[in-house]
């Protein structure tokens, strides 16, 4: 993080307190608790995208396939095997991982826009599978399922407690993510993003690193998807569609790719914004599309990236922490390179 560690930690704690109080605050703002849950889950999904865009330098425009696999993985195993709460989430993650294992080797052959093109196309396979195998998945109409009971209990968390469980996942993933991008592995990913050729000539088998990054991203995306499925008790092909990937990428860029909190900020604006817009105007896709355009042309570094830049300019620093980097912090937040 470019912010000093302490400022980042304080920001994280303030955010955490706000998120804990959210179920109390939300009704005052006329926000449904399910919308707040969605903010958290989409933030997790955008973190998965951020790992690839912001830290590995590959462009995932098919990541929603893993999100949807998570949702279907949970839904189908609840429906057909009657698995319980956490098992269904675990199986959703597993489904996403299997998906990544299958398509990963195809994607790794190319980089740049060709990687994205392959990712869009291979991701779409799962969309059509869900769409076509109506007997199992319910096809276009999607599938409804009940939120199962937690293992060893007869308690199926209602929306309120569900929110707090998701907050737990969000914090957990946030911390793991923070550790990951600071680990030697995370540094290697950043190096690959900066200059893959150089990374290879420093002895990194970059295909392997990118593949593992893809698997981690898929697992996080699968977790978000499985929880999302449990949240709305529904899975449908649109959760797998590349339009959904586009939304996740927008959230990441809008908040600030390559930053820890960026995806959350992006998700917050996106989810609350579309919630308000879609209930206010029937043609809400126009302002949504305009948000894409404004973000790309006006805030290419995202909201957090722009703020951090402004702060730095005032301090007159480089934006790089001058200290040891294996344990400490380095520039992991950068504008995406051309």
């Amino acid at each position: 993080m470019r912010m000093s560690n302490r400022a980042g930690l304080i920001a994280a704690l303030v955010l955490l307190v706000l998120l804990i109080l959210t179920p109390q605050i939300a009704p005052l703002l006329h926000l449904a608790i399910s919308v707040c849950t969605e903010v958290l889950l989409f933030a997790i999904a955008a973190m998965a995208v951020n790992l690839l865009i912001g830290y590995t330098g590959v462009l995932p425009f098919g990541n929603a396939a893993f999100f949807g696999l998570g949702a279907y993985g949970a839904g189908l195993t609840i429906q057909f095997w009657h698995v319980k709460f956490f098992s269904s989430i675990g199986l959703g993650v597993l489904a996403a991982l299997i998906g990544a294992f299958l398509i990963g080797p195809f994607l790794l052959r190319r980089r740049g826009i060709y990687f994205s093109l392959l990712f869009i196309a291979f991701g779409q396979v799962f969309y059509f599978l869900a769409y076509r195998f109506t007997d199992i998945t319910g096809g276009e109409d999607g599938m409804n399922f009940a939120r199962p009971v937690i293992e060893g209990t007869s308690f199926s968390p209602p929306d309120g407690s569900f929110y707090y469980m998701m907050l737990g996942f969000f914090v957990l993933i946030g911390i793991l993510f923070w550790l990951l991008v600071r680990s030697p592995f995370g540094r290697s990913l950043i190096a690959i993003k900066e200059n893959e050729t150089r990374a290879r000539y420093l002895g990194l088998d970059t295909d392997r690193f990118i593949f593992v990054a893809l698997l981690i991203s898929a697992a996080i995306e699968g977790l978000a998807g499985a929880c999302y499925g449990l949240s709305i008790m529904f899975a449908d092909p649109l959760q797998l569609d590349w339009h959904q990937s586009g939304n996740f990428v927008l959230m990441t860029i809008l908040g600030g790719s390559g930053t820890i909190f960026g995806p959350f900020i992006g998700s917050l604006i996106f989810v609350i914004g579309s919630d308000i817009l879609s209930s206010a105007i029937p043609w809400w896709q126009i302002p949504l599309g305009a948000l894409f355009v404004v973000c790309v042309l006006g805030f290419p570094k995202g909201i957090l990236g722009t703020i951090l830049d402004a702060l730095e300019k005032r301090r007159g620093g480089f934006g790089y922490e001058a200290r040891d980097t294996l344990h400490g912090t380095v520039a992991s937040e950068r504008e995406i390179q051309p």
């Binding site: 030697p184 420093l202 294996l326």
Partner: peptide, 30 residues
């Protein structure tokens, strides 16, 4: 020049050093 332009000189070296020490794939801090 093929370098990591946004990283510090130290970090540029670090990537190769941790790779040579077989630490590049490590998830825990060294």
């Amino acid at each position: 020049s093929s370098i990591f332009p946004n990283l510090s000189v130290y970090d540029n070296l670090l990537i190769g050093l941790q790779s040579a020490a077989n630490l590049a794939f490590r998830f825990r801090p060294v």
